[in-house]
Nucleic acid binder design. Structure first.
Lengths: 154, 154
DNA sequence: AATTTAGTTCTCTAAATTAAGAACTAAAGA
DNA sequence: TCTTTAGTTCTTAATTTAGAGAACTAAATT
């Protein structure tokens, strides 16, 4: 696994971007590695070596990534190694999940509205507006996904 | 500042939701407090007392929240206290910002595509599809915001 | 001038996160 | 059966983060 400077750079950038979204550093860089790697499937050993991380760190990160459905592996018969690869298609699902967290938030806002004092009509009004905005987004995003699918079909 | 059980519960929930998005615990709970508080403006002291956090923690968290444009304060003449309140309207801006981080990611993907080997046409194809999806989303979200604005006007 | 008030900053500690390294397990091969 | 391989788990150390408490500043009050 020889990586060019540019590849290393991108691994860092993708790593940092993912860390910002709450991912562990090692896991974040593994994602980056698999984006730029010339081989789309890498073994446990190759991953650890390429990123200079220990077996324990590699193992933990890979298992985390599989639990969160961002990676998967295949095996080849007569070979005990696992071949790890990205589940790219899941990015779209990931997007959808991100949106679901919006739904949760909009439910929280509704709970808040339900217990708020009526002494603060103005504040409550902007909170209600926020709630409506979130509901709007929640309605529109699935439509957006539909639109995307259709534009692909044609 | 007497808080009901329900209020305390919601502060926790909102706090955790915000922590998941990378916010510091104290700051996240302050946001929660201001959502449920009967007074939409609270002083430094009230905030620290209600959440049982020290002056240093209160000070740091409030300044962070103001730097990130999630809170602001007003003053009343003849009163040295600051009255802190949420910038709720900024949630929408926050949404837009969140979407901008998507734009950044789509640029990273383009950088990746630019240096990828042509030996992996299938992988490259799904990466290109991901890129198109991100571009699509980036185009559509501003339109969505427009639609929202219009629906409000009428 | 001395004191009070409102908030900031500094120092230190506790807790959480991250990952290394070694010991381990389980399957396959010699 | 002994060894190798692939990966896991446990223990420990280093780093980072969060926040308490005390010392401090600057304005206002007495």
């Amino acid at each position: 696994m020889v990586l060019t400077e540019k590849q290393k750079q991108l691994i860092q950038k993708i790593g940092i971007a993912n860390e910002k979204h709450g991912m562990q550093p090692a896991a974040a860089r593994i994602i980056g590695l698999l984006y730029v790697s010339d081989k789309p499937e890498l073994t446990f050993e190759e991953i650890g070596e390429a990123l200079h991380i220990s077996k324990s760190a590699t193992s933990n990160a890979l298992n985390l990534l599989m639990q969160t459905d961002r990676m998967e592996y295949t095996t080849v018969s007569g070979d005990r190694k696992r071949y790890f690869r990205l589940k790219i298609s899941n990015w779209k699902d990931g997007f959808t999940k991100e949106m679901e967290s919006l739904t949760n938030f909009s439910q929280l806002i509704m709970e808040v509205l339900a217990i708020r004092t009526s002494e603060t009509p103005e504040f409550n009004k902007s909170l209600a507006e926020l709630k409506d905005f979130l509901i709007f987004i929640n309605q529109e995003l699935p439509l957006l996904m539909e639109k995307w699918k259709k534009s692909r079909e044609s």
